[in-house]
Design a binder for these strands. Structure first.
Length: 579
RNA sequence: GGACCUGUGGUGCAGCUCGGAGUGCACGCCGCCCUGUCAAGGCGGAGGUCGCGGGUUCAAAUCCCGUCAGGUCCGCCA
């Protein structure tokens, strides 16, 4: 490791940087006692650790230091005696001798061992995160994250983008995710909200003439947490004017591929695109995991006039599970339960054996149907075929979920398969009032070929919105925005948003658009997810310094907590008693 | 709001099916020994409301009910 900023007034270099070129030199290093090995009153070995690694100091047995003491050790860099070199240590050929040991800080025994081999419960790690962060893995992950941030920032600047910061205290614009609310002290009874994303701000920057904007932005959403979702997360937020979807793909690809190259040493090839409709049809999801095959096969034609009740549905789809004939009955039952929990009426399974199909349903099939199932996706003896019959979308989604349950490795495993998903539908069904709901957000530009469908067949309207997907995780999404008032008002009316409501919710944006809005489009990349996959982690907490638990608490600080009576009074709040 | 998994000295586990004394293992911690270790070694020691509450039972870490915490997922995430 080379680091030109190692030297300080207290130390000359980092522990891991001590090497053969310094033999005979008198140097000082600072760090934590990683290990102490005693050999009687005249000899002990100390492993001193800092972020760069460890170096061995040879000291007198009387030096009274314990694990995790913080020391400054001044010693002579010496070649280790023959036969005592440690090949597994970067600094294993040298050691510090004739040491002067200064205790900068004593330490109690830590609540868990700071050792890569030790598996420690995450609950304990999070309570003592500051100790956990000393572990090599956390050091690596957060430094990897810093590299990704720096690379993304550099790539955007190189492409002429200007970094602009936008407010954290924003106006409520109820739509989509729940917002975190911040009470105003100077305006009692009124509230700011923390932004779900800088969406509207960055569109206003386009009106403001910043034709290429980016920001590494914190976003906040008060929704339930998951392995890939925290309340607060970080996006590479991008918006540009006078561009098409393809321009956005080029800008974002450049940044993401730069980051991949920076951390893996290899630049992935160009990112392919797939339409939303194809992703649903072949993989049963809008974020297909392309690391493995098992695509969905359509058998609707075969079963169009079937007498098998279970398959009497508009759509019959199947997947082949290679080698799945070995699945036990209890595993098949579990898959069936899983399918039902996803809304399927049932799940039909067929083991492909040398004697034909093995299944409770086999005897109800005619020869044509049996042959079709035995031929799904070039099935062979020893395979399993799963069949779902339902409405089209439901059948696709259920099989898509089963495909993941059976076939998907952990997200960070194996190759990295990026794909752009395009042409999402503009609307995704109806809300409780019978109004259409935006699939992305209400400023998404419809596909220009589908404008006429907005009033006649809105659910078939494709949009100019797109996602970036990596190994089955949604890395980000974006769209071409509406900049024409006439189209925007048609969308609002389709969404059941009247003129008054539109004005009260988005008035400042619509107002801005009256003063010359350039055509613009944008994107946002979820940095936590990107870094997690780069780091080989399956949850984003491992790449966040101080994450929250799934129930949204911080085990270290105890947040969320009560505030003082004084704070409540100043904010003119009244707290309802706990139920 | 729901489903499932986990909870046993400081840490990680076993013990739970089939109830019988807080039983065991590894690491750490404390003390002693040890002049070339590096996951050091040897000897000795301390350390537990078995997450919490209730029930069944002569007897509960173990069975039942509830609850709390952590995790994975569904709902939710424009």
């Amino acid at each position: 490791m080379t680091d030109t900023y190692e030297s300080t007034s207290m130390r000359d270099l980092l522990c891991g940087s001590v090497d053969l070129t310094m033999i005979g030199e008198r140097i000082s290093v600072c760090g934590w006692v990683a290990k102490r090995r005693e050999h009687g009153e005249h000899l002990a070995f100390l492993d001193l650790r800092d972020r760069s690694g460890v170096v061995q100091a040879v000291v007198d047995g009387s030096v009274d230091v314990r694990g995790e003491y913080v020391l400054r050790v001044t010693g002579t860099v010496s070649l280790r005696p023959e036969g005592t070199v440690n090949e597994r240590l970067g600094t294993g050929e040298v050691e510090l001798t004739d040491c002067r040991v200064e205790i900068l800080s004593a330490a109690e025994a830590p609540p868990f061992q700071i050792d890569e081999r030790a598996e420690v419960d995450e609950q304990v790690r999070l309570k003592y995160r500051y100790i956990d962060l000393r572990r090599d893995k956390m050091q690596r992950n957060l430094r990897l994250r810093a590299t990704v941030n720096a690379t993304l920032r550099h790539a955007m600047e190189r492409q002429g983008f200007c970094e602009v910061e936008t407010p954290l205290l924003w106006a409520p614009t109820p739509e989509g995710a729940r917002e975190f609310v911040v009470p105003s002290r100077l305006h009692p009874g009124e509230f700011y909200v923390l932004p779900q994303s800088p969406q509207i701000a960055k569109q206003l920057l386009m009106v403001g003439g910043f034709d290429r904007y980016f920001q590494i932005a914190r976003c906040l959403r008060d929704e339930d947490l998951r392995a890939d979702r925290q309340f607060e997360f970080t996006q590479l937020d991008v918006e540009a004017s006078f561009v098409s979807q393809d321009d956005i793909f080029a800008f974002v690809s450049e940044a993401v591929l730069d980051a991949a190259e920076a951390v893996t040493g290899q630049r992935p090839g160009p990112i392919a695109t797939m339409t939303w409709a194809e992703a649903l049809d072949r993989f049963g999801t809008d974020k297909p995991d392309l690391r493995f095959a098992m695509s969905l096969q359509d058998l609707s034609g075969v079963f169009a006039a079937t007498e098998v009740k279970a398959f009497a549905a508009p759509t019959v789809k199947a997947i082949r599970v290679p080698g799945g004939a070995e699945f036990t009955r209890s595993r098949l039952d579990a898959l069936t339960d899983h399918a039902k929990s996803l809304g399927a009426k049932g799940l039909a399974w067929f083991r492909i054996t040398s004697e034909g199909l093995d299944s409770p349903l086999a005897r109800f099939l005619n020869a044509h149907e049996s042959a079709a199932i035995a031929a799904v996706d070039h099935a062979q003896v020893g395979d399993l075929v799963l069949v779902v019959a339902d409405e089209y979308v439901a059948a696709c989604k259920v099989l898509g979920a089963l495909r993941l349950t059976i076939g998907a490795p952990p997200v960070s495993e194996g190759p990295h398969h990026y794909v752009w998903i395009t042409e999402f539908p503009l609307f995704e069904g109806l809300d409780d009032n019978g109004d259409l709901v935006s699939a992305h957000h209400p400023f998404t530009m419809p596909h220009l070929d589908d404008l006429d469908l907005i009033e006649t067949d809105p659910l078939r309207v494709r949009s100019q919105s797109y996602d970036l997907v990596l190994n089955g995780w949604e890395l980000g999404s974006g769209s071409v925005r509406i900049h024409r008032a006439d189209i925007q008002s048609r969308i609002f009316s389709a969404l059941g948003i009247g003129e008054d409501e539109a004005h009260s919710r988005f008035g400042f944006l619509l107002g801005a658009f009256r003063y010359g809005a350039p055509p613009h489009a944008g994107f946002a990349v979820g940095i936590d997810r990107l870094v997690a996959i780069f780091a080989g982690e399956d949850n984003i907490r491992e790449v966040i310094a101080f994450p929250k638990t799934q129930s949204g608490t911080d085990l270290m600080t105890g947040a969320p907590k009560d505030i003082t009576e004084r704070q409540i009074r100043d904010l003119r709040l009244r707290v309802a008693p706990k139920v």
